[in-house]
């Protein structure tokens, strides 16, 4: 007695149709995804502000940190001994809505960890995101849902395959090939389920900006005093909160800015040179507001 075919369909026939369908669905989902994620390329120097860059790089929270970095550099926010934020002056000209919202939150004495959830801040960041969606750089919820639908279809196919494999195993039918085909399908399901919040155009713009602004990397020890608030905000946007910790460790510590391990300051420096050893890493102690005495630095170079 031979066990009957699972679901009345002979194995090879099922496998053939199953694989064909799988390829069609996966390729379709990939093509759809590529099209949806393409986005609109940013024109050269396309006028992306630091907070927009920050949102594309790290979402709501990084946009808030970028705004805070710029405001701190401009000297209009501070931190109290109880770790609540405070304001130290009026907003500089050219402040963005996110700047205004963060400044307002600081004036009400919020903690930094509460900023992203603050209603004003949320509204400002939502506006920022909507604008980026319109410009083809960020994806709205609607689009991300649509993209997940492709993954759902693959998941459905995967489920059928699994059920048939299990059934086949119980019925003592050969399932090797089907089982083998489930692995790539499972991988495709996992990968398609990961929906980014920015388009490929945005990723390309970010990579380009990171390259063009490599001098803002915290491990190069940028002279933040020489640069303006916009550049500081861009530093946070591109290279994370390490920028805040490098620029103003005292403030970052007191305000409980999210910690991000500082990059290596580099190889074995034997620094006896004037002007930076082999790698001049980290912040200059002579620039930060929180450390060193003015007179304590630079004891004569003679070169």
């Amino acid at each position: 007695m031979t066990p009957s075919d699972t679901w009345g369909i002979p194995g090879p026939v099922f496998l053939r149709w199953y694989l064909l369908l799988a390829v069609v669905v996966v390729v379709g989902a990939i093509v759809h995804r590529r099209r949806m994620l393409e986005g609109t390329p940013v024109a050269v120097h396309g006028g992306l502000g630091p907070q927009q860059v920050a949102f594309l790089n790290g979402g709501d929270q990084l946009a808030v940190w970028a705004a805070l970095g710029g405001l701190r550099h401009a000297g209009v926010v501070g931190v109290r001994p109880d770790r609540r934020l405070t304001t130290g002056g009026p907003l500089p000209a050219g402040a963005t809505p996110v700047d205004q919202a963060v400044h307002h939150a600081a004036s009400r004495g919020l903690h930094t960890r509460e900023l992203a959830a603050d209603e004003w801040v949320r509204r400002a960041v939502d506006e920022l995101r909507d604008d980026l969606v319109r410009r083809g750089l960020a994806l709205d919820q609607e689009r991300r849902r649509t993209l997940r639908r492709g993954a759902l279809l693959v998941g459905f196919l995967l489920a059928i395959g699994i059920v048939r494999t299990v059934t086949g195993l119980f019925n003592d039918r050969p399932t090797g090939w089907l089982l083998l085909s489930l692995f790539p399908l499972g991988l495709a399901f996992v990968l398609l389920n990961r929906v980014p919040w920015r388009t490929r155009a945005a990723t390309a713009a970010l990579n380009d900006m990171r390259r063009r602004h490599a001098w803002l990397r915290p491990d190069a020890g940028p002279a933040y005093a020489t640069y303006g608030p916009t550049e500081v905000a861009l530093g946070v946007a591109l290279f994370g909160t390490a920028t805040l910790w490098t620029m103003d460790p005292g403030f970052a510590e007191q305000a409980e800015i999210q910690r991000q391990a500082l990059g290596h300051t580099g190889g074995a420096s034997t620094g006896t040179s004037c002007g930076g050893g082999p790698t001049a890493g980290g912040a200059s102690s002579c620039g930060g507001s929180s450390c060193g005495g003015g007179g304590g630095c630079g004891g004569g170079c003679g070169g």
């Binding site: 005093a225 930076g276 200059s284 002579c286 620039g287 003015g294 170079c301 070169g303």
Partner: peptide, 12 residues
């Protein structure tokens, strides 16, 4: 030559 304690860009 400037090797530290960098001033604001306008001063430089």
């Amino acid at each position: 030559e400037r090797d530290g304690h960098y001033p604001p860009a306008a001063e430089l």
